[in-house]
Structures are given as C-alpha cells and as structure tokens.
Amino acid sequence: MLNNIRSKQAILIVAILLLVGFLFSRDVKGLVKPKDESGKMPTTAQPTVTQLTIEEVSSTAKNLISNVTAKDISALESKYNAASSVERIENAKQLAQKWDDLEQAAPSAMYLEVVAKGEPTLNNWVLAGTRFLKAFDNTQDSLVQPVMLQKANASFTSALAIDSTNNDAKTGLGITIVNGMGAPMQGIAMLMDVVKKDPKNLKANMNLGMFAIKSGQFDKAIVRFNDIISNIKASPDAYFFLATAYENLGKNNEAIDAYLNSKKLAANPTLSNFIDKKVTELKNKR
C-alpha cells in the first residue's frame, strides 16, 4: 500500500513540474499524503527557516540570467543601495519589475517586500505575498522554499491586518497554512470561507481541488474541478488535475478524456508529450 502511494506521488510530482511556468496552478509538493487513523489530514509542523538576504537571493538568481543582464541588475542594485529612503522604494519597485520580467520570482518578491514595508498598503502586501508564493512554487531549494513560504505568510497576514475581508489575502494566507505554516484544516477552512463568499473565486477553488488530491480525497477533487470547468474557467490545469483525480480512482476513460482536453487547451509540446505517454499507458490498462 505504501509503495503504491509513493508511486502515485512520484507520478504526480513529475506531472506537476511539467506544468510549472505556463499553467495557473500551484506546484503541490507530495500531492498524495496518507491520512491518519482518524481519517484526518496530519498536522504539519511549521518549517525551520534560515534567513536569507536580498543580496544572497539576487546573487543566486544572477547565475540563471545572461552576464549582460546581470550587470544591468548590479548597476540598479548599486543605485538602490546608495539611495535615500524615499528613492530606495522607487528603486526597489524597478528591481522587482526587472526581476519579474526575467521570471525570477524570489528576488522580485524580496524587493516587493521592501516596497510594502516602505509603503504598507493592502495592494503592496498582497503583491509581495503573491510573488513569494510564486517563488515558493518555482524553487526546489530546501533552504529557499521555507523562507519564501514564511514571507508569503507574513505578507498576507499584514494585508489582512489592513483589510480582514480581502479575498486575495485570505486565499494566499490559506495556501501558506496548508503548505506548512499551520494546521492544514485551518487553511482549508479559510479557503472555504472565501469560496462561500465568492463562489467563482478561481484561485481558492483551484487550491481546494488540489488539496483534495493532496489528502487523497479524489471524489471531492472531481466534483471541485468539474465545477471549475463548467462554471468558472475551463483551463488546461483544471482538466489536468481532474484527470489526475480520475486516474487515482481507476476511472481511466474519464482520465483520458480530461488529459486530452488539458493537452488541447495548453498546446504545450512538453505537456503534450507527457500526456501522450499517459494516455497510451491508460489505454493499455483497459
């Protein structure tokens, strides 16, 4: 049984990694987790976080871009470091945008945090939190991940301190809690509250569906993703996760249909190759 669960985990993680960079959805680490004897999801302890500086995060990101672009970034950073407090915020905005344009979420988020601390508005804290979550999704670095998650949690908490009714902040905070910043059910309850007030909130619904998969509640995931597809948005990632849920219940025909819909909407060669292999595999199981 345990080997079967681990096998499903491996398949799902590989599949999700293929989606990173072009699908809306978040990368869910270790999608299928066994429940405890009471049938509840196990409580996740908060991670031990190593502090990272902007300089450290920036230095790592520069290894992933061209030397010319890295030099341009360094020049902007020198200007940022020499600036007065007011000018520094404007420079931080420029650096955040520059790093975001380069698809480097971690340093972008760090500079957005500087902006939010200097100009603590609801929008600035939500932007910082959202970018930290993106950085959490996009890195496999075991030191960077918990820092990004904790900072996302802190950013959304600051946003809710300004407006406790903001759905974007509540959704983001709920996601961080389920991913390790508290008891999973607390985060689920927060997302459910968002959906209750805003039934067509795509991000909250998507994450509830993914967390249903993560906890092995595939029937609930199927209902959730079918509702998303029918009433909110028929996206490639919604179809992909729907297929994943069907596959885990042995409903191979339904899984094949959903995978093919995902392939059609995404029109991505890497995902298409994966789905073609997956469909062939499922057809052989009929």
Rank of each mutant, 00 (worst) to 15 (best):
K170I: 00
T171Y: 06
L173R: 14
L173A: 04
G174V: 00
G174W: 00
I177T: 15
I177G: 02
V178R: 15
V178Q: 13
G180D: 08
G180T: 08
M181L: 13
A183Y: 05
M185Y: 14
I188N: 02
A189R: 13
M190C: 01
M190W: 01
M192G: 14
V194Y: 06
V195K: 13
K196G: 10
K196E: 13
K197T: 13
D198R: 10
K200V: 09
A204V: 04
N205S: 14
M206I: 08
G209A: 06
M210H: 11
F211M: 14
A212H: 07
I213D: 15
I213G: 04
K214G: 05
K214S: 15
S215K: 05
D219S: 15
K220V: 13
K220G: 04
I228P: 01
I228T: 09
I229M: 10
I229R: 01
S230M: 12
S230N: 15
I232V: 14
I232R: 11
K233N: 12
S235R: 00
S235F: 01
D237A: 04
F240C: 06
F241H: 10
A243D: 03
A243M: 01
A243H: 07
T244L: 09
A245C: 06
Y246T: 02
Y246D: 02
E247K: 10
G250R: 08
N252L: 01
N253F: 00
E254N: 12
E254W: 04
I256M: 00
